[in-house]
Amino acid sequence: QHKQISGVSSGCQQGGCLTCSDYNGCLSCKPRFFMHLERIGMKQIGVCMTSCPPGFYGTRSPERNTCTKCRSECDSCFNKNFCTRCRPGFYLHLGKCQETCPEGLVRSDTQRECV
């Protein structure tokens, strides 16, 4: 019989997990934790985290706090529309990652910013 133990079981020994199953990992998180869906090879399991990993931002809602991926040109971000660090080849200006900089500013490859 498939093991489904709420809280801690072999597949989901994590502090932030509220309910979980062996195959899906965390199904829901304790209050204040974020649900992050982690891809490990062919598997995708739920993980409950106090803050989202780089490349993701946290969104709180009554049903669930979730980690959502930043825009593709963005390495890290506050939210969907405000990037804090760009991917190589993109330059940060006013929270946006662009391939070119506005007039009067130049591209800094080290900081990946328009300076």
């Binding site: 195959y23 199904l27 669930r64």
Partner: peptide
């Protein structure tokens, strides 16, 4: 190829 998705995804 077989690929798992979590129900919440």
């Amino acid at each position: 190829k077989l690929l798992q998705y979590h129900p919440l995804s």
